[in-house]
Amino acid sequence: MTAGNDAILRLQGVHTDIGRYRILHGVDLAVRRGRVTMLLGRNGAGKTTTLRTIMGLWRARQGQIIFDGQSLTALETPHIARLGIAYVPENMGIFGKLTVRENMLLATAPRGFAQPYLDRVLDSFPMLKVKWDSAAGSLSGGQKQMLAIARAIIEQRRLLLIDEPTKGLSPAMVDQLVGALLRLKAEQTTILLVEQNFRVAEAVGDEVAVMDEGRVIHTGAMAALAGDDTLQHRLLGLSMAAAL
């Protein structure tokens, strides 16, 4: 990856422990402004931990995380969020007892909904309009995922961290979601996207970073990886091949 000065997020030698377990062993990663960077790798490679460490939900024991010239390493999660980083966790983090509207409202600035953003989001996810005042817990899995992503883009963000959005979704839902991600990509949104579904990765990714055993073992253009079967097989093994 040509990680020049246009990298908005840069991880250098990040080590993270969870309890007694060492999960990340020196992650180096750069996310370029306005691009979609895919974070691929086998289960347990450390992808989720990387996202959580960026968000400050786990603490890096060692190493640097620089966001737009500012170090995140010592900041608390709320600070990091307020810098304009939105996080969509693997479990989506939906508040089931709150309505769809309240879930969205939580993610807005204190002034409340900004009309242009709200229009854009409801345009992308028309389903939300229908369910606006329903409890979010009553939504289907796919609808919850839409809500989670809608919530992430209800304000101007500088970086989206999205963890396996297609996990457990029906093929039709995956297509809808890919459509939404492509729209974000067209708007030059910067995204760091963890994905197990290679087809999705191929469709939306500009850059790719592959992790294994707590390190980044490959970076480059998504298209290059997609076109090189041998490399794919070597880096991702059978788990990804199965998704093809």
Binding site: M55, L57, E76, T77, P78, A81, R82, Y87, P89, G93, F95, L106, A107
Partner: peptide, 9 residues
């Protein structure tokens, strides 16, 4: 955790 990730202390 999600409340914190949305920017609230």
């Amino acid at each position: 955790e999600m409340v914190q990730a949305l920017g609230y202390h």
